[in-house]
Design a protein around this nucleic acid. Sequence first.
DNA 1: ACAAAAGTGTTGACCATACACCCATGC
DNA 2: GCATGGGTGTATGGTCAACACTTTTGT
Lengths: 225, 225
Amino acid sequence: MKKELTDLRLGVDNVIFSVDAQFNRLFVLLVKREQLPYKDYWGLPGTIVRQEESLEDAAYRILSEKIQLKNLYLEQLYTFSNRDQDSQVLYLSVSHFALLRYEETMLIGQNASWHSLLELPKLAFNHREILNYGYKRLRNKLEYSPIAFEVLPELFTLNNLYQLYCTILGENFSDYSNFRSRLLKFGFLTDSGTKAYVGIGRPATLYRFDPDAFAPLKDYPLLFV
Amino acid sequence: MKKELTDLRLGVDNVIFSVDAQFNRLFVLLVKREQLPYKDYWGLPGTIVRQEESLEDAAYRILSEKIQLKNLYLEQLYTFSNRDQDSQVLYLSVSHFALLRYEETMLIGQNASWHSLLELPKLAFNHREILNYGYKRLRNKLEYSPIAFEVLPELFTLNNLYQLYCTILGENFSDYSNFRSRLLKFGFLTDSGTKAYVGIGRPATLYRFDPDAFAPLKDYPLLFV
DNA sequence: ACAAAAGTGTTGACCATACACCCATGC
DNA sequence: GCATGGGTGTATGGTCAACACTTTTGT
């Protein structure tokens, strides 16, 4: 019996993205480590799984210490494992992923902050690898699922939507006018009847995402890009 | 310190598919359990991770006890977790996935066998859920990656390829002649110069998959279907 | 009137579908 | 010759990228 068991440390690490819709910036949540190893390095918010917790419990717990959560849905990414050569302890990290609204997310405490993906510090452990994996998943979800509408306000303009896609996928992923017609043709964006007046220029139609109209499409591999 | 640790049982479970190219059948590898719980039920080949093993080691070890492995590449699927309400032990199952050639795979021992997906017995634990997850991944990989060529013989006809897709994705996923031209247009199938003479009818051209010609395409989301 | 931003339309190239049809072989 | 399966071609309709154009606002 003893032979079959192994010394384990089970942890969770979270790759939490947020999009600043106003200034078109993509952020990831990092925490400054206060303990060894990698003291004073930045890393992903993670923790050891405690007695009586599930994996998801642990992931939500550590996040709730760093940011205010509401309606946060975590998705499992991948399980990274690594056995320490000296101690023979097997370290397991089950990583999770989420996308939030930057404007609605309050940070708690001093040691957590949003970092642009364009200027990342050196990260602790293999967190850079986990982050890259999460970023790949983010872009993938944006193309194949309606994740964008979870992070936009209830009413949004097509330009808001387009900017969000640009921020995550990069400029020139698609022509704006073609993006418009493709999205409108799907039929799950309904005209709210109101307009967005923002200074000079023609006011933009405010749309609303209609989950019921989207539902029948959800099993098809429709491309948003 | 004690408070942070949790009673853990770490296991791996494998969803191993094989395709019988000759008779167009898709199989999954199941093992008849000899111990409690779920004694005499069929289940996925899995094991507890031992001292000094990595996750992958354990996955390959249990498979090597059931089938002859050669060039088997396992891909991680998902980590299922479940805490026992009575003992408070946290059970973790890191599942893996692979696709093999039925014709080249020798089973070892009496308690492992191939089962058609169309007539599955009741499975132990949550193995039905894991299997469904793996099946979804299999179909997905077939559409977006050249996994089919790992499982076909070195020389194959376009009809062999088409039959393989039919077996996994179901009939009528695409017209045969359109499937032909789409695949040939990619340019990574090279005419071997030889023909397959199988009884009556015009002999079919034998093709070979060219990894070098495929390489530049690998980062594009090309659709095989 | 003019600039700015939203929104529409047009064009040509490409691609998918559903077939019809031709080709090479065994009997 | 003819059945059988391999392989090619084609007409239609749709989709996509690029870009020109029109509309509605503030100043």
